[in-house]
């Protein structure tokens, strides 16, 4: 008998930091059964957490009744997470890569989310569809 493996997963949550644990559980439960290595699972979870936190803070400015949609597509050699929000957009090119030495010396707080996403994932693509939605695509390749 042929087994049909599910390889796409979806969740929609409210734009609250309370939902971060639900998003993390969703990622873990979606990709762990496929045998993805723990290290890769952890990186994907943290990247999606950082992305969702940024949406709550910067896209929706802490309004809790908005929507965050997460779509996950699993391939044998990669995992692609697409995150949609309907709030304010930003230009990722305007956010410079932090100089971590200087960052630490000046004891800055915040602003590490995008840097972490770029460090943890193989690809980070952001597109804003003016007046419609913002789409962030995070891709992790499995070695």
């Amino acid at each position: 008998m042929e087994t049909i493996k599910q390889n796409t997963f979806d969740i929609s949550v409210k734009s609250s930091t309370e939902e971060l644990s639900a998003i993390r559980n969703f990622i873990r439960e979606s990709i762990t059964p496929a045998g993805v290595a723990d290290d890769a699972v952890d990186k994907i979870i943290l990247a999606v957490d950082e992305a969702s936190t940024n949406i709550v803070k910067h896209s929706y400015h802490y309004a809790k009744d908005k929507e965050i949609r997460v779509h996950l597509a699993l391939e044998p050699d990669s995992c692609t997470v697409t995150i949609l929000d309907y709030g304010d957009s930003f230009d990722p090119n305007e956010i410079p890569k932090p100089d971590m030495k200087q960052y630490l010396e000046e004891k800055r707080v915040g602003g590490l989310g995008l840097y972490l996403m770029r460090t943890l994932m193989d690809e980070v693509q952001y597109t804003s569809y003016e007046g419609k939605y913002n789409k962030l695509i995070l891709i992790k390749k499995f070695n």
Binding site: L20, R24, L46, D49, E50, T53, K107, R108, V109, G110, L112, G113, L116
Partner: peptide, 16 residues
């Protein structure tokens, strides 16, 4: 079990 950058920020905010 887990820390994100928001957690790291707490240590940055108080170390000085």
């Amino acid at each position: 079990s887990y820390i994100s950058s928001a957690g790291l920020g707490v240590f940055m905010a108080f170390i000085e």
